[in-house]
């Protein structure tokens, strides 16, 4: 239990994201730390008590996500996008069908490029794609940084394999519930309100923290099968690696 708690604390505080959130608003940072801890406990113990405390706090996190995002209408087009729209409207061929000898023109160009519904659909798709990119969370969106958005480091890239291991493990055990509450709701919300938030999609932070902690726990569990001397050697090498990567990322952030 002590090791698991230490792992959770390590993951919670060894990332740049939480410090950015705390720097922006200590209360928001604290709320996210508490929510992440509760999610960890909820998944571990599967107790309704934790669920009742977790849910309102998580809804509050979602509210802050909504409040801190620079929202734009899903069908709004800026000057450049209007230019592209106009250019594309001209590219479509004329399409018509004959019904009882009468020609009916099909306004395909307008349907795909002009209608608000299409613009909204493609915008939601764009927002969705931006937040499901693992590079956003582990590499500050490198190598495909977004234009006009200041990317920032979130989690150390060395934690990515543990995130994958942990996520698979969590999804195996708590699939529907976990996906719905901590993954699907923030993703749907951000897809609708947009990804332009200087704090990033922090409503997903609890899921990331819990997945990484779970992955680390499983990896540590594998060490039990080997000798103590080897375990200590592996742990020392791992801690050294984590430390120098942390120094590397601190240098990037402060550059």
């Amino acid at each position: 239990m002590l090791i698991q708690s230490l792992l959770l604390i390590f993951v919670l505080f060894s990332n740049f994201w939480i410090w950015r959130l705390l720097e922006y608003n200590a209360l928001l940072g604290a709320l996210i730390i508490v929510t992440s801890t509760l999610l960890y406990l909820l998944l571990k113990k599967n107790s309704k008590h934790y669920l009742y405390i977790f849910l309102p706090l998580f809804i509050l996190v979602l509210f802050f996500q909504w409040q801190t995002t620079a929202k734009t209408s899903l069908s709004y087009l800026d000057k450049g996008e209007l230019g592209t729209q106009e250019m594309r409207l001209r590219q479509y061929p004329l399409v018509s069908i004959q019904i009882r000898g009468k020609t009916t023109w099909i306004p395909l160009a307008h349907w795909f490029e002009g209608r608000k519904e299409s613009i909204t659909f493609f915008r939601i798709q764009k927002n969705f794609s931006e937040i499901i990119d693992p590079n956003l969370y582990f590499f500050a969106n490198h190598p495909r940084e977004r234009v006009g958005i200041k990317e920032f480091e979130k989690f150390s890239y060395v934690l990515l394999p543990f995130f994958v291991i942990g996520m698979v493990s969590i999804l195996q055990r708590h699939m529907a519930k976990t996906i719905f509450f901590v993954l699907a709701i923030p993703i749907v919300l951000i897809s609708l309100i947009g990804h332009k938030n200087s704090l990033g999609p922090f409503a997903l932070f609890p899921f990331f923290v819990v997945s990484i902690a779970q992955g680390l726990k499983l990896a540590l569990g594998k060490l039990q099968a080997i000798s103590k001397v080897r375990t200590i050697q592996i742990l020392l090498v791992s801690m050294f690696t984590l430390a120098i990567i942390l120094v590397q990322l601190v240098a990037y952030v402060s550059y």
Partner: peptide, 12 residues
């Protein structure tokens, strides 16, 4: 690692 991960990213 960043390049490698980008090849499995749903975004790409």
């Amino acid at each position: 690692s960043s390049q490698f991960t980008s090849y499995f990213s749903p975004r790409n």
